[in-house]
Design a binder for these strands. Structure first.
Lengths: 213, 213, 213, 213
DNA sequence: AATGAATGAGCTTTCATTCAT
DNA sequence: TATGAATGAAAGCTCATTCAT
């Protein structure tokens, strides 16, 4: 969302703002009541607006949910790209940055995670959703694969392939998210990061040596 | 379920069988259409029975879903206990066995995973579901924690705690399940196991040395 | 129900007993839950028998309800005839006897009244029910009309017709029944009888003179 | 309902009007089909509106029925109060007015009576209904008790108590209503009033002397 | 004659969607 | 644009009735 967007004429600008307002309300609703428990009326009420407003802006419920997922995906993508393109010194630092990103409060946030898992839960049944998820995931895997490759070559590590580490790492973050969702009480951001770091230290000992991540 | 259970009189037995038949149909339906897309009529049709049958045996939809989750949880629990109680030689072997279990075709089965994720997706909204999930998870974590502790002591490993490894491993399997669900095409059971094994080799090098898991 | 009925062979006798048992259960159910809230299953359960039993004996629900109403009507009719045919001395005594009958505990019983009013409540919609009710009522009115006529002639009362008194008296008992049903707490059998008696004393002063009825 | 109420804005006014329209349809349906035979769809159809409309305005069927009963009770209450507060000359005239009221065509109307009796039929099973009925009844009895007391004192009547007359009169009107419901063909408003009047003449001869009521 | 599992029509209720204002 | 009353399809659930045992 480039800053020029703010210069749109008031009508369009308000349209855009309404959209975000409604998507926001959708996220809150899904997080509170689950996908199945969220009605169009709930979303409208959460946004403090009237019944018909959601259909007015999103036509159908399916589209609202699709756009909401897309919104979250874009938001994450933006953060991911920024992390990746950071003028960071070394691949190992970038990789660690990506791991940190996934556990950052604004990303690893129960409200948003609830939405992701809600979608994933329906993913098998709704190919459209799966497509969005898969498309991004592939991009992330590719980037991580590349970083791991560089680290392995740099460190001359044997016994692991870049694919294995990539798989392991991305699985771990997904799993840690689930854990955050299911055990809100006992979940600890730092412990999670420590687990990830313990793995990095174990496979890439030359690149990760600090005691704390 | 002791073998004597099979000697139930035909009436009771058939009640029990019908229950399983309906739970089975429920799993298939959720897997095909998602939690939200599954109707009582769908389940009845899938089971080849009539409309009212599900309410007759489970009273409400909520209860049907609850019992289905419980059924899956019990099924997994049975396998987990069996693996844990196996007269296996060493903790390291048992731990590997548990990892293998999670990636075994009958466990890591898209149909069942779809159900698990469907529930997890609604977990935030339905405390009842979360309770079932959480209750078992705690048991598993404890068992794994114990195994890791023993391995660490046995190997004199420094730099990792049992909690970190447990967290990492259970997160990894959860994440690999999600991966299996979302990328059915590219998902590879052996690759997944290799990823897990690469981690084990890295953290517990003395205990896991084979090239292949 | 003449005593010879008891000599039927066991099969038939048991059929008859089942019928009464089920009608009894029906009365209890309607009284507890109302006509609308009474299901075939409720009746069977109340009778301590199995689901299908009611259809076996009464074929349809409508018939069960019809037979139950008929049963109550017959029971009342039996009592009414007995009172009417009593070798009572005078019309005034017989008339008072009929009034007493309507307020007798076994007749003016909330359980049974609930059933009568349940039927009356549906009477407009179910002509079959209305027919039963009307048919008996006419008979009673005729008998009372006759008694009142005799009393009026005997006393030389002017200013009231037999029809008016009959109407007033039968309306009063119906109304007192409703009162018994609606105000179980404050309802008092003796007060009710006193009200009726006060009317009799007022219209037929020569025939009813005691202080208490 | 003061005349200013009519100036409500069209939206609110229409809400109120729709409510009455639906209650009206409910009364018609109950009167035609009985409480048990009345479905939400029937009510909607009777009102010439769509399926969901009744739930939209009354949420549940139970509430619709409750509100309908309340509506009828309020309507009667209004008439009763008006009759009671009439600048009538004497208690005897007011009492007669109340009796007339109960037999007035708009009150003693088979359609409405069918509804009252439908509720009374379920009253034992539904405490909520009984409460509404009882609450009003008490008020009416009190008012009548008061009037009778004055008449008795004024006339120096002995042998009857105010309570007895009140009981007798209110029972009579209830019974006459039932009669109106059950015997629509032979029912005669004037005969009914004559019966009531014959009673009044008999107990309070000094106050009621005309040949016709 | 009796049982109780099974059926399926019908009911209440919910909710995405439409539309007059 | 925005509103919210209205719609009607579809869902969950109940229950009279049937039928194999």
């Amino acid at each position: 969302m480039p800053s020029t967007a703010k210069k749109k004429d008031s009508r369009t600008a308000s349209r855009e703002r309404r959209r975000e307002q409604l998507i926001d309300a959708t996220i809150k609703c899904i997080s509170k009541r689950g996908l199945g428990g969220t009605t169009m009326a709930d979303v409208a009420r959460e946004a403090g607006l009237s019944q018909g407003i959601v259909n007015l802006h999103f036509q159908t419920k399916e589209n609202l949910l699709y756009q909401t997922l897309q919104y979250l995906a874009d938001e994450y993508d933006e953060l991911f790209r920024r992390e990746l393109d950071a003028p960071s010194l070394e691949p190992a630092q970038i990789l660690l940055g990506l791991m940190r990103l996934d556990l950052r409060p604004s990303v690893c946030d129960r409200k948003k995670l609830a939405v992701w898992f809600a979608y994933w839960g329906e993913a098998k049944a709704m190919p459209t959703y799966r497509k969005i998820c898969a498309q991004y995931d592939n991009g992330y895997d590719e980037a991580m694969l590349d970083l791991c490759q560089q680290i392995i070559e740099d460190g001359g590590y044997a016994g692991v392939t870049a694919a294995q580490v990539t798989d392991a790492l991305s699985s771990m973050t997904d799993g840690l998210w689930l854990s955050c969702l299911l055990h809100p009480k006992s979940w600890d951001r730092h412990a999670a990061l420590a687990s990830v770091y313990s793995y990095l230290k174990a496979v890439f000992p030359q690149h990760y040596q600090s005691t704390t991540p």
